[in-house]
Structures are given as structure tokens and as C-alpha cells.
């Protein structure tokens, strides 16, 4: 599976706006947003603002960095073994 990211500005009704569109094999699977200083201890983390298909979850996770987000996305999208 090929994962690509593309920077984007996201409207979140907050100061969190730096985001990445995440594509898996050319399809949009997630929008990640980097948490701003208003989140204090969690500032700088990447939040799953929206997940599509198998990435849809009511408990949207946060990741320390984009590599961690990528690993989570790959694991969720991997075909069941």
C-alpha cells in the first residue's frame, strides 16, 4: 500500500489548522490536524480529525508524530490476516 500526505489548512473552529490529507493508493482515507498551543500538554500532536472507511472511529486517536500516524493507518488498512 502506498501512503501519501499532502499539507492542507483545515477549518476546525479553533486555532488547530495545520493539517495533512492522507491518501492510501490514491484514495483519501484521513485528515490529520496538528494540535495547537491551546491543547497545552498535547500541543504538537497529530489528531485524526476525520477518518474514512476503516479509519472511521468514535475514539479518534492522537499521535506523537506523522510516522506514528502512518503506522496506525497502515495497520488499520491492512487486510485481515
Amino acid at each position: 500500500m502506498s501512503i501519501q500526505v499532502q499539507p492542507v489548512r483545515v477549518e476546525t473552529d479553533s486555532s488547530d489548522e495545520a493539517g495533512e490529507l492522507v491518501f492510501a493508493d490514491g484514495r483519501l482515507v484521513a485528515v490529520l490536524v496538528q494540535l495547537s498551543d491551546e491543547h497545552e500538554a498535547e500541543a504538537g500532536m497529530w489528531f485524526l480529525e476525520a477518518g474514512f472507511g476503516r479509519l472511521q472511529t468514535p475514539d479518534a486517536p492522537k499521535f506523537a508524530d506523522l510516522d506514528e500516524a502512518r503506522a496506525w493507518i497502515e495497520q488499520r488498512l491492512a487486510p485481515p490476516s
Partner: peptide, 11 residues
């Protein structure tokens, strides 16, 4: 999520 709670409280 606590992210949405934080944002909403701020608003």
C-alpha cells in the same frame, strides 16, 4: 474526544 471538548469549551 478531549480535543473536541477543549475546542468547544474555548468557544
Amino acid at each position: 474526544t478531549n480535543v473536541h471538548v477543549n475546542r468547544s469549551l474555548k468557544v
